[in-house]
């Protein structure tokens, strides 16, 4: 039995989160300017391996926008091998000082989840990013619930970054799909600031299905709504989509 005060506290936090998300819906990604809610578990999905870098970029952005530093980044050897290693100068270019980052490379998914639970329990951290490639063995409702509870107790932003993995039921507060979007070209058709297509696949206690296109602004450490060029995505998704199950929502692009 939870203590009444703790319960009230948790309800209040959930309510606060819901309000933030409501605002976000009105203001095209306004919620994201402040990053993901602390003390919660969030899932970020990059649907294919080619989108892994976008997933990582979005996760970094979320942590920085929430001001949730330092960051503990957990990766598997497989991710390190297939996706390349995290590159210091590139992290600086995203606005993340590598001095605020500890990278842990583990052997397999179960070690990853175990280290993630340890990290989520550490009140000295701002964000824990656990990056898993493919079907994560051992990730089930119990494991994600454990991460969620640990994050609630410590106040850490717990991000489960999943690359090319199947969506499984989890205790996460929000679940996002992220894909790269064409950037706004600079002079001489040079690629501009990182841009992403986001879809809120699920959020606890509120409708989901919203899509945004955002651009990461390193100087203000926030996501700006990106002016859409070409095909416009609906800013407010159809409400019917909100109730659909979180199982595979979108095929590989």
């Amino acid at each position: 039995m939870e203590e009444p005060f703790a319960l009230i506290d948790r309800l209040r936090r959930a309510a606060c989160l819901a309000t933030r998300m409501e605002e976000g819906e009105r203001g095209t990604g306004d919620a994201l300017t402040r990053g993901l809610a602390p003390a919660q578990l969030h899932e970020i999905h990059a649907l294919s391996q080619g989108e892994a870098a976008s997933g990582a970029g979005f996760a970094i952005g979320c942590a920085l926008a929430a001001g949730a530093r330092p960051i503990l980044w957990l990766r598997t050897e497989a991710a390190e091998r297939q996706g390349g290693r995290l590159h210091g100068p590139g992290l600086i270019a995203m606005g993340l000082d590598p001095a605020d980052l500890v990278v842990v490379v583990v052997g397999d998914d179960s070690a990853l989840l175990r280290a993630a639970a340890d990290g989520a329990r550490c009140p000295g951290l701002g964000t824990v990013i656990a990056e898993g490639w493919g079907a994560m063995r051992g990730l089930d409702l119990t494991a994600s619930r454990r991460l969620m509870l640990a994050a609630e107790a410590s106040g850490v932003v717990m991000i489960l970054l999943r690359v090319a993995g199947q969506v499984v039921p989890s205790a996460a507060t929000t679940r996002w799909a992220v894909a790269p979007a064409p950037s706004r070209a600079l002079a001489a058709d040079a690629p501009g600031a990182p841009a992403y297509d986001l879809e809120l696949l699920r959020r606890r206690g509120a409708p989901a299905g919203t899509r945004w296109r955002v651009e990461w602004n390193r100087d203000t450490q926030s996501f700006d709504p990106a002016p859409l060029s070409g095909a416009r995505l609906p800013l407010v998704a159809d409400r019917a989509a909100a109730d659909r199950p979180p199982a595979p929502v979108r095929g590989t692009r």
Partner: peptide
């Protein structure tokens, strides 16, 4: 814009 990648292949 970022001039260096966040993932580096080596």
């Amino acid at each position: 814009p970022p001039m260096r990648p966040i993932h580096l292949f080596d």
